[in-house]
Design a protein around this nucleic acid. Structure first.
Lengths: 94, 94
DNA sequence: ACGATATGCAAGCTGCTACTTGCATGTCAA
DNA sequence: TTGACATGCAAGTAGCAGCTTGCATATCGT
């Protein structure tokens, strides 16, 4: 299992997570097109490599169907950040 | 203002945040000693550079007094992670 | 004032990371 | 089956990030 923090370190990867949050189950091609529309100039291969990193970190779930892949966001690995330094609006005292 | 995500990407920097969570207001020297005791082999200069990154990201507050510096943890920048992909135990539905 | 202590600054080296390029694989439609 | 489409794989390249090294600065005790 890869490093969640390292996965979050890249701006393009964060943009991918943003994109998946706005629209789940996107195809790689869809994702590339939409990122291009938002000013990112990454190639398909670059995005694919980023997806591999995100998948390895558990932040993304990829399911294959025919010649397409469908990508979904999984935010549960982010929870370890809370648990480690315990902040945020709700993890307050008692 | 630096990048919070990039600041979190390095294991040594995360160890620094851990250390500051356990004991606030540490000196640079104190910090180095304690990290050494935990298996980290970083030099003082390395730690100092890490601190600069953490300070730039707002994750750490450094106050200078005489020939010492006192370092404190500030977890508030982490909140943007929650707000961006909104997860965790409490940011649930409704 | 002088030495010791605590930290700052800057240049150079190295390894990793993101990107590109080119080709391979596999799926669907006709 | 054949061609077009969607994705996978791998090697090579460039830039940056973290580390070291060496010296500079500043503060405290005596």
């Amino acid at each position: 299992m890869g490093d969640v923090y390292k996965a979050l370190a890249d701006p393009t990867r964060r943009a991918i997570l943003d994109e998946l949050r706005d629209r789940a189950g996107q195809t790689l091609f869809e994702l590339c097109t939409r990122l291009l529309g938002k000013g990112f100039t990454s190639s398909r291969q670059a995005i694919s490599q980023h997806l591999a990193v995100l998948e390895d970190a558990g932040l993304v779930v990829i399911r294959r169907e025919g010649r397409y892949i469908f990508i979904d966001l999984d935010t549960s690995p982010l929870q370890q950040i809370y648990e480690r330094w315990g902040i945020g609006p709700c993890a307050s005292d008692t």
